[in-house]
Design a protein around this nucleic acid. Structure first.
Length: 283
DNA sequence: ATAGGCACCTGGTGGC
DNA sequence: TGCCACCAGGTGCCTA
């Protein structure tokens, strides 16, 4: 499920149940996901109160009041779901345990947060908050797309002389953090730029045009509650609906949605991943 | 430094 | 029904 808009949707869904609550019990059902779980994870969480839930790129950052931060990443197939809503708003009962429920957080307010991830590309780490910026996950990470650091001057410099196709460059988290395969395709469609074009060869006007398009696509997707592929549900069990807003992703063979265009959406492979685009109006 | 390929894993789908 | 190939929203390591 998880590019920036989906992760942000999950963060917002988890916040009411986790912020201010204490980890009463933490159930750990395996030794790790993409990387091993940190030492003494259970003991370091139980009894600790949660501060704010933040996000950096596709990572959810659970700020703890003991000076540590719990880092969560959903990989390709990870889900974080809340049950037993303490305020009784959603009338959720706790569902039966599922295959691939790797970690379950039992909060002292009655909420239960389950980290399920069939493919196990997700990640969970726990580090001292003051070392966050130095963490290898974040050291080389590019600017947050909504921040002022993601601006024209920055992007022009970052793309200069790069021989890589723009599609691959926008997927590179060191350039800008949070875009994934879907939203890169959607951004390039809106920009009218061919995914095959070399990043360093784009005119400065076209590079500049990418800035508001990146922010705009991500904003729209967040407002729609993210995208729900394969029935993915957010933390509260609701479906996002931005997938209906896709103009190219997964639409190969369909007509281009640009009214002036008679093209047909194509699908190609770049750096081992599918790219969807309109060869007629993306040049 | 940079670009491409592949590996990490499970599950769903479509063809025969 | 079964088997198989292929595909999937991410990332990091290895190679030239």
């Amino acid at each position: 499920m998880p590019e920036l808009p989906e992760v942000e949707t999950v963060r917002r869904g988890l916040a009411p149940s986790m912020e201010g609550a204490v980890f009463e019990r933490v159930e750990i059902n395996r030794a790790g996901l993409r990387i091993p779980f940190p030492e003494n994870l259970k003991a370091r969480l139980e009894g600790v109160r949660v501060g704010r839930l933040g996000r950096r790129s596709k990572y959810i950052l659970v700020d703890l009041q003991n000076g540590e931060t719990l880092i969560l990443h959903l990989g390709m197939s990870g889900r974080l779901t809340v049950s037993g809503d303490p305020l009784g708003q959603f009338h959720h009962k706790h569902p039966a345990p599922q295959k691939h429920d790797h970690v379950v957080f039992y909060m002292d307010n009655g909420a239960r947060v389950t980290f399920n991830d069939p493919r196990r590309f997700g990640l969970l780490d726990l580090i001292e908050t003051e070392f966050m910026v130095d963490h290898r996950l974040f050291r080389a990470m590019g600017p947050e797309p909504f921040s002022n650091d993601f601006n024209e001057v920055y992007l022009l410099k970052a793309l200069a002389r790069r021989q890589t196709p723009i599609k691959s460059v926008l997927l590179d988290q060191r350039i800008v953090a949070g875009l994934g395969n879907i939203y890169v395709c959607e951004v390039l469609f809106r920009a009218g730029i061919s995914p095959k074009r070399k990043a360093g060869a784009l005119s400065s006007a076209r590079v500049r045009s990418l800035i508001p398009l990146v922010k705009g696509v991500l904003e729209e997707a967040i407002e729609a509650g993210g995208s729900s592929l394969k029935d993915y549900r957010n933390a509260s069990g609701d479906l996002g609906y931005f997938q209906h807003g896709f103009r190219v992703y997964g639409r190969d063979g369909e007509s281009c949605q640009n009214t002036q265009c008679s093209g047909q959406i194509a699908r190609i492979t770049q750096a081992g991943r599918s790219t969807f685009y309109c060869p007629r109006c993306q040049r």
